[in-house]
Amino acid sequence: MSSDVFSTNYEFSESSDPFQFQFQQVEEDLAAGQRWSTWLDVERGSRGPEPRPDWVVTAQAAIDTELGILKTGKEADVFLVERAVEAIGADPAKSSLLAAKRYRTEEHRSFHRSTSYVEGRRTRNSRDSRAMAKKTEHGRSVASGQWAYAEWNALCRLWTAGVPVPYPVQIDGTELLMEFIDDGQGGAAPRLAQTRPKGDLLASYFEQVRHGMRELARAGLAHGDLSPYNVLAQGNRIVMIDLPQVVDVVGNPQGMEFLMRDCRNMAAWFTSRGLEIDDQELFADLLVQVF
């Protein structure tokens, strides 16, 4: 993001005629790492589901400031962004921290398992399908965008259903803005794998994970890559993340296998922490929700 981005605003200056006003154009330069909010630049369907949390900043005058990188991944990088607007008239200042997940184009990704995840999905545009098959520049762009929109659609659907996932704020091309899950002290919440919960907290974490997996199953879906590394622990609350590869349990020929692997991964971790979980029982419970 360059520093020469600017916004054109207009100030009113009173002339000798009290009923006439003169327009004065004002250019406001932004610092490096800043941009004007794109909230109103994207289509309505590219903004988060309602009712929206109170912390979501929707003012067009807001500025996004990039604060650093949170995570580098196989298919995308996640950055910390502050979206803030100054006080205007009676409207108070407002700001929130967002996680900006930016998907790489295919040639810059090291995620080689994508084919098995997308079995059963369809690309509506035949031109896009041909371009993806030929791996043209347009095809690589489409493939990258598909992963972003797959995660966007999953987050919107699951957040609305009450699944513990980050609130999806907006999507713009290959950039997905979502709720930043913090640790209550200004940093990022730890992954479940980094925690050592015991007793009631451990049991509560499992019940929340099982609830999330059940809600996914009711929607006919499996996370597809669920593990203690794709679950965040925010105090007493857990949040599932990294959902671009959500799998249609019935439509994908390997759907059952993905669902079983999710069960095996989570059961093994909780069992290793002292809470005995039978992966087969968990799998059977989820199948009831699917069918």
Rank of each mutant, 00 (worst) to 15 (best):
D128H: 15
T105R: 14
N153D: 13
E107N: 10
D182T: 06
R109P: 06
P168Q: 07
E137D: 13
V169L: 05
G145H: 05
E137A: 15
I181L: 10
G89Y: 10
W159M: 01
D128M: 08
S141Q: 07
L176I: 09
S116I: 04
N125V: 10
S116W: 07
R124F: 13
L177A: 01
E106K: 13
G89Q: 08
E137S: 12
F111W: 14
K135I: 04
S114V: 13
Y149R: 14
Y167T: 03
N153M: 01
R102T: 09
P92Q: 04
R140F: 06
K101M: 03
K134L: 15
A99S: 05
T105W: 09
R130Q: 09
A93K: 13
T123H: 05
Y117L: 03
A99Y: 11
N125Q: 06
P166I: 02
K94T: 02
A93Q: 12
A99I: 09
T115S: 09
D128K: 09
S144Y: 01
T105D: 12
T160I: 11
F180R: 13
S141L: 13
A100Y: 07
S110R: 13
E175C: 12
R122V: 11
S95Q: 12
R130M: 07
G120D: 02
S126G: 00
H112I: 02
S126K: 14
G162Y: 08
